[in-house]
Design a protein around this nucleic acid. Structure first.
Length: 221
DNA sequence: ATCCCGAGGG
DNA sequence: CCCTCTGGAT
């Protein structure tokens, strides 16, 4: 069995195969404005995008901007978003977030990482999603899928999501960050599952150190 | 039981 | 670093 080269040699092929397998990978959250995406992303913690979209399809028609959420208040908002789980914490975060937007940015969502991460309830992950999908600014959010899949592919070795993001941004061209992010998530959801990855059907198997380990015949070890 | 594109607080 | 917040799907 031939050895796998360094990631620098494998990366272009990995990017090519991912683009081939997931040509339409994109943000699965429904939104019309940066503010709607920000709200949807906060709601998406520990919850499927499908469920977030069910909740926001009821919520968004009644929102004009952050002012609407402040006026709605934590308790009423919590009832509206109950189905996404963590609803009290998320309602509190969304109202504080809306107050921050009004106070600091005239109710507009800033297209700037530092400003985004300074908002209540917005961390690196949420900031990256908003930058990439609302403003088309290259960002590489490392969520649970990106972390797991990039490690299995041997593209990253850091133990924290932040350091993993740094490793990936070092080797992936900025123009590919957004699509790479969506493709790794699609792959993580559909094939490279946390528990038992479907290596047998994975088109990346020849390029994946972990997959080859998993599928190697026991006789040779 | 375990998982879902997290963030804040201790 | 660990815990908590939370409900629905599988």
């Amino acid at each position: 069995m031939p050895r796998l080269g360094s990631h620098r040699r494998r990366l272009p092929e990995i990017l090519r195969l991912l683009a081939l397998a997931y040509p339409d990978a994109h943000c699965e959250l429904d939104f019309q404005t940066p503010f709607e995406l920000l709200v949807a992303t906060v709601l998406s913690a520990q919850c499927t995008d499908r469920r977030v979209n069910m909740v926001t399809s009821r919520l968004f028609p009644r929102l004009t901007g952050p002012k609407s959420l402040v006026e709605m208040g934590v308790d009423r908002l919590a009832e509206e978003i109950r189905d996404v789980g963590l609803f009290r914490a998320k309602a509190r975060a969304l109202v504080s977030l809306s107050e921050d937007l009004i106070r600091l940015h005239g109710g507009q969502v800033p297209a700037d990482r530092q400003a985004l991460e300074a908002l209540a309830g917005v961390g690196k992950k949420t900031a990256s999603v908003v930058l990439a999908n609302a403003f088309a600014i290259p960002a590489l959010a490392v969520d649970t899928h990106v972390f797991r899949v990039s490690h299995r592919l041997g593209l990253a070795s850091a133990k924290s999501p932040e350091k993993t993001a740094a490793e990936l941004m070092e080797i992936v061209p900025p123009d590919d960050w957004i699509s790479f992010h969506h493709q790794l998530i699609a792959h993580g959801r559909q094939v490279c599952h946390a528990r038992s990855p479907a290596c047998a059907t994975c088109t990346l198997l020849p390029l994946c150190p972990d997959g080859r380990r998993r599928t190697a015949s026991p006789a040779v070890r």
